[in-house]
Amino acid sequence: MRLAFIIGGGADGLKVADWLWHIACPHGLEVDLLDLEAAGLPEVCSSEVPTPPAVHDLRPWLAAADAFVVVRPACFPDSLADWYAPQWRTRPAAFAGLGDDDDAVARLRPFFATTVAEVIRYGRRGSADRVLSLLKKEK
């Protein structure tokens, strides 16, 4: 199973993703790390202009994923919901962060086909193991 870790939170997001990657690999999961800041995506989605190349470049990575883990969801731009709706709506998702992302998680849940109720909190290994197991079952 291939997971896409969607990171939008700079150093904190990378810290959480690195910790979670070390937990995901023993579960037999393949992980793609997709850093939204490094992808160079525009802030706004507009139907009045052509889709930017950075948006097209990210689409195959998302399409290859069986499930998503949104890391640091407070940094997830709303425009992503529009650009990648077909990917979000057909795959399960989970959320991971440092513990201060509950409002962002609630805002993003409707964009995904299915979401795992439990949010992975950095440093809580049991939570990460449970959520990753649930994602594997949802596939």
Rank of each mutant, 00 (worst) to 15 (best):
D103P: 02
D12L: 07
L34M: 12
I7G: 03
D102Q: 13
D102P: 00
R109Y: 01
L29K: 01
V70N: 08
G28C: 03
E43Q: 15
F5M: 07
L135E: 10
F76M: 14
V44N: 06
V116K: 04
K15P: 00
P73I: 00
A63N: 13
R125N: 01
V44Q: 12
P77L: 11
F112E: 07
G123Y: 08
G123S: 05
T114G: 00
V70S: 06
A96H: 11
P50K: 12
K139N: 10
V55H: 13
V69L: 04
E138Y: 13
S133I: 00
D129K: 13
L3R: 05
A17L: 08
L98Q: 13
G28W: 08
D78S: 15
R109K: 15
I7K: 09
R109V: 14
H27D: 04
I23D: 01
L20G: 04
D78Q: 14
A74S: 15
V69A: 02
V116D: 04
V71D: 09
L108D: 11
A85E: 15
C45W: 14
G97I: 07
A113R: 13
W83T: 06
I120R: 10
A63M: 13
E48R: 11
D101I: 04
R91C: 10
D32W: 06
E48S: 11
P26Y: 02
P92W: 11
D18E: 12
L36C: 11
K136W: 00
D101R: 09
W83M: 04
P50D: 15
P92Y: 06
D66G: 15
T51R: 15
W83A: 03
D82S: 15
F76P: 01
A93T: 01
G28R: 02
P52S: 13
P42D: 04
W61I: 02
L41T: 03
C25G: 00
D82E: 15
Y122N: 12
A85W: 13
G40K: 11
A113L: 09
W61N: 05
R91V: 08
L80E: 08
V131L: 05
A4D: 00
A11L: 12
L29F: 06
V131W: 06
V31D: 00
A67H: 06
V49Q: 14
W19F: 08
V70E: 05
A54M: 03
I120A: 10
H56N: 09
W88V: 04
R124S: 04
E118A: 14
I6W: 03
I6H: 01
A117K: 14
D18Q: 12
A81M: 12
V71P: 09
A4C: 11
